[in-house]
Amino acid sequence: MTVRIIIFARLREIVGAAERPLTLPSGALVRDAWAALAAEMPALSPLETSTRVARNGRIIATDEPLHDGDEIAFLPPVGGG
């Protein structure tokens, strides 16, 4: 299946893009999407535990399943003010 990844703030700087498609095996979970991205970019790993993930506009736990066509947003904490 293919999902659309949307990336914010610090993560966007690391990944170098605001959006990208990601192909995953069927049955993949939210955390598998992160793992696939982090495998490409190890600099993401310090942010894993603090980044929240939204599926189709709702924040969910990382053990939730993904479906073809889902929009997955990675939301790292932002501290600046």
Partner: peptide, 20 residues
């Protein structure tokens, strides 16, 4: 509820570090 824990210190730049 949104962010149960902060990011590791130094992993997320402030405005002074990363700019805005």
């Amino acid at each position: 509820c949104l962010y149960p824990e902060p990011p590791p210190a130094g992993s997320v730049p402030t405005c002074a570090e990363g700019g805005v």
